[in-house]
C-alpha cells in the first residue's frame, strides 16, 4: 500500500445530491482516517448508496466536494486508483472465469502484467477461490460470488475501500468471513467506508458510525459515544398481537417514553429506566385488547440510538 497521508484520507464536505425534487443526500460531511472503519448506517433509501457513488466518482454531486488523499474525486481521474469500490450487487462477468474477471479489472487500474498476475493470485487466495480460478463465475455459489466481488475491489491495493452493503443476501458463514476480512483490512491501515442497514454488523466491525436518514447524517461517533447519548435509557421490545399502531400510540403518551416504533409483530420502546416502565407499558395495552406475548429489555445499542433519533426502527 502507498504511504498514508496525515489526517483523514477521505473528506466529504456538505455533499448534496437530488433526484428531481427528492434530496437523496442533503449536506453530509464526514471524514475517514487511514485504518478506520466507518459504518454508514441507515435504512434502505436513506441515501447510503448515493453517498458512496459520489465518494467513488460515479455520481457528480450537486454541491459540496469529495477529496481522497487531498485530491478532488470529481476532477482528478487518477485519484480513483486510491479507491477500491465494492458494489452492492455482484459486478462480475458470469461468462468469464474468476481469473479472467480479476485480470480484466486489475488491468483497468493500469497495473503491469507481472503485477496483475501476482495480485490475481493474491486475491484468489484471499477469497479462498484459488482452486476455482479457471471456473466461470456463473458456476459459483452466491457466497463465492460475493467474496470475489469484494476481492475485485482490492486488486489495486486501494487506500480507501468502499463497501456498499456487501453482506446483503449472504449466508451466515460467508457473512462472518466477510466481516472478519473487513476488520483485517482496517488493521492493515486501509480506510474503510462500510454501508449497511444491519446494526449488528456496524456494531461489530466499525470504529465509528454515522447514522443516515432521509439524506442527512443525524448522528456520528463511536458506538460508545452514540449509546451514551441515550443516557440511562433502555430499549424494550414488546412482541404482541392486536392493534399495534394503537398500542404504540398509547405507549408514546406515557411519561418517560422517548420514542416508539412498530415492526410487524412488535412495538419497540426507548424509555428511561425500562424495568420501572414495564408495568405501565403493559397496562397501556389492556384497554385496546393488545396481548403482549414476550418482553425483551436490552441495554441500549445502535438500533436503540436509531430508534431514539428517528422514531422508526432501522429495518422499516
Amino acid at each position: 500500500m502507498a504511504a498514508m497521508p496525515d489526517g483523514p484520507l477521505l473528506r466529504c464536505e456538505k455533499l448534496r445530491r437530488s433526484f428531481g425534487d427528492r434530496a437523496a443526500v442533503d449536506g453530509i460531511s464526514l471524514s475517514i482516517s487511514p485504518g478506520e472503519i466507518y459504518g454508514l448506517l441507515g435504512p434502505n433509501g436513506a441515501g447510503k448508496t448515493t453517498m458512496i457513488k459520489m465518494v467513488c466518482g460515479l455520481l457528480e454531486p450537486d454541491g459540496g466536494e469529495v477529496t481522497v488523499g487531498g485530491r478532488h474525486v470529481s476532477t482528478d481521474l487518477s485519484v480513483k486508483s486510491l479507491i477500491g469500490y465494492v458494489p452492492q450487487d455482484i459486478a462480475l462477468y458470469p461468462d468469464l472465469t474468476a481469473s479472467e474477471n480479476l485480470s480484466f479489472i486489475a488491468r483497468l487500474y493500469k497495473l503491469t502484467s507481472d503485477v496483475v498476475r501476482e495480485r490475481v493470485a493474491e486475491v484468489l487466495e484471499l477469497c479462498e477461490l484459488s482452486d476455482r480460478a479457471n471456473d466461470r463465475v456463473d458456476s459459483f455459489s452466491g457466497g463465492m460470488k460475493r467474496r470475489l466481488n469484494i476481492g475485485a475491489g482490492l486488486l489495486h491495493h486501494p487506500q480507501l475501500l468502499v463497501l456498499d452493503e456487501p453482506t446483503v443476501g449472504v449466508d451466515p458463514q460467508s457473512r462472518h468471513s466477510i466481516l472478519e476480512r473487513v476488520q483485517e483490512f482496517g488493521r492493515t491501515g486501509m480506510a474503510v467506508l462500510y454501508t449497511t442497514h444491519y446494526m449488528e454488523e456496524a456494531e461489530r466491525v466499525c470504529n465509528r458510525v454515522g447514522i443516515i436518514d432521509h439524506g442527512r447524517l443525524i448522528a456520528e461517533g463511536t458506538r460508545r459515544e452514540l449509546v451514551e447519548r441515550l443516557g440511562e435509557r433502555d430499549r424494550i421490545e414488546l412482541s404482541a398481537t392486536g392493534n399495534l399502531e394503537a398500542f404504540a400510540a398509547a405507549c408514546r403518551a406515557l411519561p418517560g417514553v422517548d420514542s416508539v416504533a412498530t415492526t410487524a409483530d412488535a412495538v419497540q420502546v426507548v424509555a428511561s429506566d425500562g424495568r420501572r416502565m414495564l408495568p405501565h407499558l403493559l397496562e397501556a395495552g389492556e384497554p385496546i385488547d393488545v396481548t403482549v406475548n414476550a418482553i425483551d429489555v436490552t441495554e441500549p445499542n445502535l438500533e436503540t440510538v436509531f430508534l431514539h433519533l428517528t422514531g422508526t426502527a432501522l429495518r422499516d
Binding site: G57, K80, I83, Y85, P87, I90, A91, L108
Partner: peptide, 14 residues
C-alpha cells in the same frame, strides 16, 4: 445492468 460499466467507471477510466 451487471454493474460492469459502473465498475469500469470506478477505475481511472474515462
Amino acid at each position: 445492468t451487471q454493474g460492469m460499466i459502473e465498475r469500469m467507471r470506478a477505475a481511472p477510466v474515462r
